[in-house]
Simulated scan of single mutants.
Amino acid sequence: MGQSHFTLSFPLRSPVDANVLAEQLPAMMPDLFEANDKIGRVHYSRFTFLSARSLLFLGDFDGEFDHLVTDLAKLSGPVFDAILRHVVDPPPMPVAINANAFANWTKAHLLEAVNIYTAYPEVSAKEIKALARAAEVDGGGELHPFLVILPIKSYLHFVTVQLILRARGKGTTKDLDSVGTPHFAQFVPLEDNQIGFFTVYDGSFDKYIADFTKNIGQVFDLIFRFTKSPPPSPCRKHLQEFIDFAAGASRAPIGFYQAYPGLSVQDIHALIADSKPQSVSG
């Protein structure tokens, strides 16, 4: 059961619909969180508005998307019914009794990530929770989603950035491992020649960005050549400007779900290491 990521785009009918959902969604998140807990295959999830015409739903999960979205339809159907009332050409409702139709609709609205990073690809959400219970470890860390949107100058540059990101796939993974605080990360091509960089990370924003620029800043230096109104480069020499740019280009999350709240990347690595059989010498 491998890990994966989804970015699901809901095309909204109007800015008025976006405003209504912005008011309604936060109150519905406990029901979605309960469904995620029951399903047991979701590591993290969150919503955010890309624009007044587009709502994104992002998740990091185990297994196949078809199975996950069908379970979500059955267990949290009213949440998606409320969203779909504001969406262009929605699938049949209620989704709880039209789960297959909802799954087909969502597959047509998935945005494919250029690359996907995970800090602990060998374990599932259920396994991490089980390891934490067995070790009696309670997460005391601070985790946050980071949802930054990069506006690219033109469609040609948009394609070029994707080619660069694909070519640097393994290098980007190594760089993110060096940062040591991202749990999951993705670069996702979006509408209107935009690139989304979505992560879940440990610690404070400023410290994350400082560590980030030291280890993966060169990737952003490349992307910024094709970005509208970028900060000065190289990032590592213009840290405050990069922090200000990232803060201004980020989107606010709605409903940040954590399967194992407060466990840092290093906590999870330690749990995995402790669970492996120890070799006996002599």
Rank of each mutant, 00 (worst) to 15 (best):
M1C: 10
F10G: 03
P11M: 04
L12D: 07
N19P: 01
L21Q: 05
A22L: 09
E23A: 15
P26K: 05
A27M: 06
M28L: 00
M29N: 04
A35M: 07
K38G: 07
K38S: 02
G40W: 01
F47E: 07
F49Y: 13
A52W: 10
R53V: 07
L55M: 11
L56Y: 15
L56N: 14
F57C: 00
F57E: 05
G59A: 03
D60Y: 11
G63R: 02
A73S: 10
A82C: 01
L84T: 01
V88Q: 13
D89N: 14
P90G: 00
P92Q: 06
M93S: 02
P94G: 00
A96S: 12
A96G: 09
A101N: 11
A108H: 06
H109L: 03
L111E: 02
N115D: 05
Y117P: 03
Y117V: 02
T118N: 11
Y120S: 06
V123S: 07
E127P: 05
K129Q: 13
K129N: 11
E136R: 15
V137P: 07
G140T: 07
E142M: 13
P145I: 02
K153C: 00
K153G: 09
Y155I: 10
Y155W: 12
V159M: 15
T160N: 14
V161D: 08
Q162N: 10
L163V: 14
L163W: 14
I164C: 14
L165I: 12
R168G: 00
G169M: 08
G171W: 01
T172F: 11
T173F: 00
T173M: 01
S178A: 11
V179A: 08
Q186P: 03
F187E: 02
P189E: 01
L190C: 04
E191Q: 11
N193F: 03
I195C: 06
F197A: 06
T199K: 04
V200D: 09
Y201I: 04
F205Q: 01
D206W: 06
A210L: 08
D211E: 00
F220I: 09
D221Y: 08
I223P: 05
I223C: 04
F224N: 12
T227E: 08
K228N: 13
P232H: 12
P234M: 07
R236N: 13
H238Q: 08
L239W: 02
Q240W: 12
A246I: 01
G248P: 01
S250C: 06
P253G: 10
P253H: 09
I254M: 08
F256A: 00
Y257F: 00
L263D: 04
L263T: 00
S264M: 15
S264K: 14
D267Q: 09
I268G: 02
H269E: 13
L271E: 03
I272K: 13
D274S: 12
K276N: 11
P277H: 11
S279M: 10
